[in-house]
């Protein structure tokens, strides 16, 4: 009798835990939203939502690429450096007009992606090592190209950074479009399916005849280009190229967003919705602490707590 109830209780607990792992990030967003609605003055305003959305956009875009890399059982530590590199290139080529400059910046991101992907797929370097190398090299190159902060006066760039269409900032529109695009790619394309299979079991994917190397390279190219897009948008918003500080610790924010969003670090699964929510959760958390003027060290502690919770959840997932 007691055994029976006990069994049911643990089963319920397990189901609850599973649900929490699955939807915990959304719950977190809702809770933080409600807390802010009640306690933070002027929280429920269009202006505020706009600000939050604009601020989360670059992190989100980088996190989308990171989700692909993590889904393939890898990681891309070079994203922050790619942002710096893209802002340097953008500034250097702005003389040819914003269009060409943006293209050059994105190509720069793709090139870093090819380098990362080749190291991983052909040379067999572990993703964390390969992208660490490019993280150091990318930032160095960015600073060689543009040693110090440089203002961007181009009106088109300024418009990209702070303009809007129907009240929605371009930056937010681009981030949303990219999130939908990446979600579509993961769900509906052969590339997305292959990527998940490779992330889950590489030997099986190889024996099934999937183009493992091509897919891996493409993953890091996507991640590089998305990081470059984030770099361009951040530059436009700041109306300045600052390669020494742009994208610093971005790789950690992106990994946090992806992991908090429920994508397992062991690969084989990508949750784009969760990643978006993860990025929003961290943004809301930081914002809440800033708006209530809590000491900056609290922000770091709070982020650490969220990461620990996410890792705990990931550990639980790994056990199943």
């Amino acid at each position: 009798m007691t055994d029976l109830t006990l069994g049911r209780v643990t089963a319920d607990r397990e189901r609850l835990l599973a649900l929490l792992q699955e939807y915990g990030v959304y719950l977190g967003v809702v809770v933080l939203f409600l807390v802010n609605t009640v306690f933070t003055p002027h929280f429920l305003s269009t202006e505020n939502f706009r600000t939050q959305a604009v601020q989360v956009a670059p992190v989100l875009i980088v996190a989308l690429g990171m989700a692909l890399a993590i889904g393939s059982e890898g990681v891309d530590l070079a994203v922050g450096s790619v942002m710096a590199l893209s802002t340097s290139l953008l500034s250097l080529y702005l003389g040819y007009g914003p269009g060409i400059a943006v293209v050059v910046a994105l190509v720069g991101g793709a090139v870093v992606g090819v380098a990362n992907g080749s190291l991983i797929a052909f040379v067999g370097v572990q993703p964390i090592v390969a992208t660490l190398a490019l993280m150091v090299a990318g930032r160095g190159l960015a600073l060689v190209l543009l040693p110090q902060l440089k203002d961007v006066h181009d009106p088109a760039m300024a418009e990209l950074g702070s303009g809007d269409a129907l009240g929605v900032p371009y930056v937010v529109l681009i981030a949303a479009a990219l999130a939908l695009l990446v979600g579509f790619v993961v769900r509906r394309t052969t590339f997305g399916r292959s990527l998940l299979a490779i992330g889950d079991s590489r030997p099986a994917a190889r024996l099934a005849g999937l183009p493992v190397r091509r897919v891996l390279i493409l993953v890091y190219v996507c991640s590089g280009v998305l990081a470059a897009v984030a770099g361009v948008l951040a530059t436009a918003r700041l109306t300045a190229s600052d390669p020494s500080s742009l994208g610093n610790l971005m790789e950690l924010s992106a990994i946090t967003a992806v992991v908090v969003g429920g994508t397992p670090l062991s690969g084989g699964r990508i949750r784009i919705g969760g990643t978006v929510a993860g990025a929003v959760l961290i943004q809301l958390l930081t914002t809440t602490l800033i708006k209530h003027d809590l000491p900056p060290s609290w922000t770091q502690i709070a982020q650490a707590v969220v990461i620990v919770l996410a890792v705990y959840a990931a550990r639980e997932r790994g056990k199943r």
């Binding site: 290139l89 500034s91 040819y96 050059v104 870093v112």
Partner: peptide
């Protein structure tokens, strides 16, 4: 990567 660095040779900033 090297070529990327060389590319900056023909850069034209604002």
């Amino acid at each position: 990567i090297t070529s990327l660095a060389l590319v900056s040779g023909c850069a034209k900033s604002e």
